[in-house]
């Protein structure tokens, strides 16, 4: 089954270097109540892995260790497939809404 849009967006954000929850939320603009479950599901499906930040280092910064996410090989493949799928969306005319597709 193809991944839903939210999952692809999350994978994309991780691939783009956003490594933990709030960063990902800020990068893609979805709600936290959506993004966290998506992360769990992706991890369950083996598309991302998570690691806890080195505790010593966090202590040095006097803050709790964060949970970092990273893509697995399967996650990268799924992301590539998903991007391909969205790239292949049929172009639609937006003239009726008086909107011009952005150039560039």
């Amino acid at each position: 089954m193809p991944l839903p849009f939210a999952s692809i967006a999350v994978l994309h954000a991780i691939a783009d270097g956003h490594r933990f929850g709030f960063e990902i939320i800020d990068a893609i603009g979805l709600k936290s109540g959506t993004v966290y479950p998506v992360l769990e599901k992706l991890e369950g499906a083996g598309l991302v892995t998570s690691t806890w930040e080195d505790a010593a280092r966090a202590r040095q910064d006097k803050r709790p260790p964060r949970r970092y996410f990273d893509l697995t090989a399967a996650g990268a493949t799924a992301l590539a497939d998903g991007l391909e799928r969205y790239r292949n969306l049929k172009p639609v005319s937006l003239r009726a809404w008086k909107i011009r597709p952005a150039r560039g």
């Binding site: 939320i25 709600k31 936290s32 109540g33 959506t34 966290y36 479950p37 769990e40 599901k41 369950g44």
Partner: peptide, 21 residues
């Protein structure tokens, strides 16, 4: 604060997800 409110949803979701599994 809005982001933190999402934590409740995440927790509840986990509850059902984990239990089902």
């Amino acid at each position: 604060a809005v982001k933190v409110a999402g934590a409740a949803r995440h927790a509840l979701w986990l509850r059902f997800y984990v239990r089902r599994l």
